[in-house]
Amino acid sequence: MSVKNILFILSLLSSFIMAQEASEILDNMEKAMTQISSKGIMSQTIKTSTGSLRELEYEYYSGEKGKHTLMRYLKPSRSKGMAILMRDNSSQIWMYNQRTRRARMLASSAKNQNFENSDFTYEDMGGSDSWTDKYDATRLEDDKDGHYMLELKPKKSADVSYTKLIMQIRKSDNHPLSIAYFNDESDAFKTLYFDDIRIIEGVPTAFLLTMKNHRTGSNTIMKIISITYDVEFDDDFFFENNLRK
């Protein structure tokens, strides 16, 4: 066996190990981030490129490791009572209008739409344990602070809106510190930052999430007001019927 062949096999082996390592890091990150269930109250402050501010507050329920999410608006008063249900990682989105007491199912193409004109899309809001199903991870060189850096590219059959994600993950607890979102351009068009990470019921939890849109200059800040994990929901909780209650 020539040296050239040995080098080739070693390089294949190394990239296999790197890929395996990357998927393990991603898997650990998902385990750290995604609990079986949670509920809480969150606020969202949307700062537009013109500088105007909008503030929302809602109850947040998440089940089956973030696969299903239900949100009920508490503020502002004009949106109070409205609710959104995202099932199966946002593949089914239901919106409930209390004024008409009617729930409408949105087509899955709506998941690319911005949630309440914020910098988050429905896809961003619904489900966080679907990264391993939808993306192939590659480990990049650690950053200067020694955090893991992963590059995620969508699998061929995956129905996702982004062409690439770059994640910065803290080694101590596998919690992400930032996620950069790419479309076709070489630069990230928006980045999500995780701050104020506290341990709640043994779970590292980012109380401050900031999505910055680099193209428009807008940003959206999500704050956790209260949160609790391992909540037991009824079997029919994440269904359209529950939007009315």
Binding site: T48, S49, R54, N117, R215
Partner: peptide, 8 residues
């Protein structure tokens, strides 16, 4: 169409 400023 929702613009990036709060105008639809």
């Amino acid at each position: 169409y929702g613009l990036k400023i709060p105008v639809v």
